[in-house]
Design a protein around this nucleic acid. Structure first.
Lengths: 399, 399
DNA sequence: ACGGCTTAATTAATGTCGTCATTAAAATGG
DNA sequence: CCATTTTAATGACGACATTAATTAAGCCGT
């Protein structure tokens, strides 16, 4: 309800933001497209676009087809007006990628993390080294970098400097943003990895065009990002969307978070593999790491009744979890992402069916349930969109 | 992300809306308070306030205390600039109330509903008769009515004419708004009852000052309203917040919605009483209706181990359900309302404790869990705020 | 009771910005 | 090569908020 005041200047800011956002997200577009899309008058569009071109944010890129009449010029965001860095701090590795403004990858590096010794300072060091590395590899000057986005698998509490809680990394209130900021003065944006994945799928993947969507990230653990009215929902301290630790089986299996019956204790990759091992009466599941173990389970389901049953149950739990999201958020789309969701992609029909059993008819009918389209690197891509989102919101004005 | 265009006029509209909202919600206030609160300049505030006074929306109400210097005038919304009607269509009755703009009750009527024969046309008839009745009783002219808000215990799908699904009333896609609109040309606003309760608690009760809050409505069934960034969250088809039918006990008790293990099947009043009866090996619970039966259970807990256990379990389930809300929405407050929640108010400490066990530490620490402050008629009060919310959003300009 | 002081509200001057109406530019087609 | 059509740029106009200056309206001490 609390509305900010409006002044004459804010009109221009808003219109700059609206036009620049459209050009970025739906471009290339002509001035006429913008007139139709925004409802602004032609002179207003030309005026603002003229400014954006003068400032080097937007460029004209050839004329559009015309059958009679002056052809309109296509407008696009200038790809090299700036570059952005996206970082994925996962449970097993730090990945740093460099993008131009069309989200073309200019370079990338990856640093594996030791399974136990994930010191915050080490991670911050990898991030800083990674930034230097990708800039050097692509011979891009530091001054061209608009900002650095970091997606972290854990709860990221925003503030002057973002603070991270990550049980899987053994982190409690780690001031990761400060640690990184000590090594660089590039603008930093930290966010939860599921939220950056959601942002990427929203702009470039399965979420395009939706106003209300939920993105579920199923990996070793389970997370989610909720987009409401086109914007990632953060809540009071930006830890909203902790789907993995909602109770699905009251009093059920113990979860690594300390509670019982969490969704993550049933459908996270680690939990699925555990349940499979228990179903095999303790015999270990073949494979060196979770990814190959999960793959082994999926492969075994062709022949093994036990494996089949574990997967069916997984679909049931996951479907019920999705149904909860549908009942609570009433989204147009539920998008399943993360490596484990991709590996379990074959369960999609069973998941849909289970969700249909548990969800209310009306909201279930409104929602589609689908897989993500951007693969596993979506976290870094989404992280890279964070500085861009800020740029768009500010109408292209850097601070 | 999609920003609407801004034009010069929209500046004034926005500022009118911001100032009028503040005066309504936090008034009486002085012009200086508004200057400080909104960041607008003094002349801008005076100018807009002058318009609002000329139009009869706002009135000056005496001078403020002053110790030297010209005393500032207090500004308040003109109580009788318009009146609003709030309707609560519950499972057992239709209640119609008339309010002035300070939300003082000018009149009210109630029509009981037969337990099974709740024909939509009958309900619409009660609503229309109720409007006539309260207007006549208070000798208020129909032309003074700003609008009619209706809170319905069921899923309300917004559209040109809102459509209602209410399992407990046996309604499926009932065009209630059309049925009412056929009998009156007053502006109508339909919404889910939990959402109107949330709106009331948000403006006048336990939600004041919060930007992110969840309001749980526990009656015979269970519902919730989610306020994000100060605004009720509706989702794609405004059925968001169906907390009652989220799965809490996978594969558990059958729910009247057809699924299994829904929260409502454990903590709704009907379910609690059922569980108590089962714990008494089928002996009926004393009392004629659910309210007295629940009261009997609460009273019995003083002496009966069985009753005590049923209540403890209820607190456990409810706490886990609240924990899910906390994990997913990361609110500042969780407010429990509805008659059953009030009757179970003594369980609040146990509910808090159970929620603490199941929720993640960080979001749990951010949230307070409390009881609603507005009692049971909050649904009608909240419904009456719907036309007012529209008026405020439009800067006081009626259509 | 009467200046001096303080705070509130209004008036005047200035500047930003979008709209409407008009003009210039740049194509196609007979 | 000129008429036609569509796009882009100009200019007059009006809506509004801002800063600075004035006027209004109360306290307080002598």
């Amino acid at each position: 309800m609390e509305l900010a005041r409006a002044t004459n200047r804010s009109v221009r800011l808003r219109n700059r933001s609206a036009l620049l956002s459209r050009i970025f997200l739906d471009g290339p577009l002509t001035r006429q497209d913008l007139v139709r899309g925004t409802g602004l008058s032609q002179p207003a569009v030309s005026n603002v676009v003229g400014d954006l071109i003068d400032e080097g944010l937007v460029m004209e890129a050839g004329a559009a087809e015309s059958d009679g009449g002056r052809p309109s010029m296509m407008l696009r965001v200038a790809p090299r007006h700036a570059v952005v860095v996206g970082v994925d701090v996962g449970e097993t590795r730090v990945r740093v990628e460099l993008f131009d403004l069309t989200m073309t990858v200019l370079g990338s590096v990856e640093y594996p993390l030791e399974h136990n010794g994930t010191e915050p300072a080490t991670v911050a060091g990898h991030v800083l080294a990674g930034i230097d590395r990708v800039l050097a590899d692509s011979s891009v000057a530091r001054s061209e970098v608009l900002g650095v986005g970091v997606g972290v698998s854990g709860v990221v509490e925003q503030g002057t400097h973002a603070v991270v809680d990550a049980q899987t990394l053994g982190w409690h209130r780690v001031p990761l943003e400060r640690l990184i900021a000590e090594g660089t003065d590039l603008p930093l944006h930290l966010d939860n990895g599921a939220k950056t994945l959601g942002q990427a799928e929203m702009w470039f993947g399965a979420g395009r065009g939706a106003r209300h969507a939920v993105f579920a990230l199923v990996g070793s653990g389970v997370g989610a990002a909720v987009v409401t009215n086109g914007v990632t929902y953060r809540g009071a301290s930006s830890s909203a969307g902790e789907w993995g630790h909602t109770t699905l089986v009251y009093g059920g299996r113990p979860c690594r978070c300390g509670a019982r019956g969490c969704l993550e204790a049933y459908v996270g990759a680690e939990a699925v593999i555990d349940r499979y091992r228990e179903a095999r009466r303790g015999r270990p599941v073949p494979g060196d790491d979770e990814e190959s173990q999960l793959a082994a389970l999926v492969a075994a389901a062709e022949k093994s009744e036990t494996a089949r049953r574990v997967l069916d149950e997984t679909a049931g739990y996951l479907g019920a979890g999705v149904a909860n999201l549908i009942n609570l958020f009433n989204p147009e789309r539920v998008v399943l992402g993360g490596w484990a969701a991709m590996a379990l992609g074959g369960l999609l029909p069973a998941i849909r069916e289970a969700a249909g059993r548990q969800a209310l008819r009306a909201p279930y009918a409104q929602a589609t349930i689908e897989l993500g389209r951007l693969g596993v690197d979506a976290v870094a891509l989404g992280a890279a969109t964070l500085p861009i989102a800020r740029l768009l919101a500010n109408g292209g004005i850097r601070r």
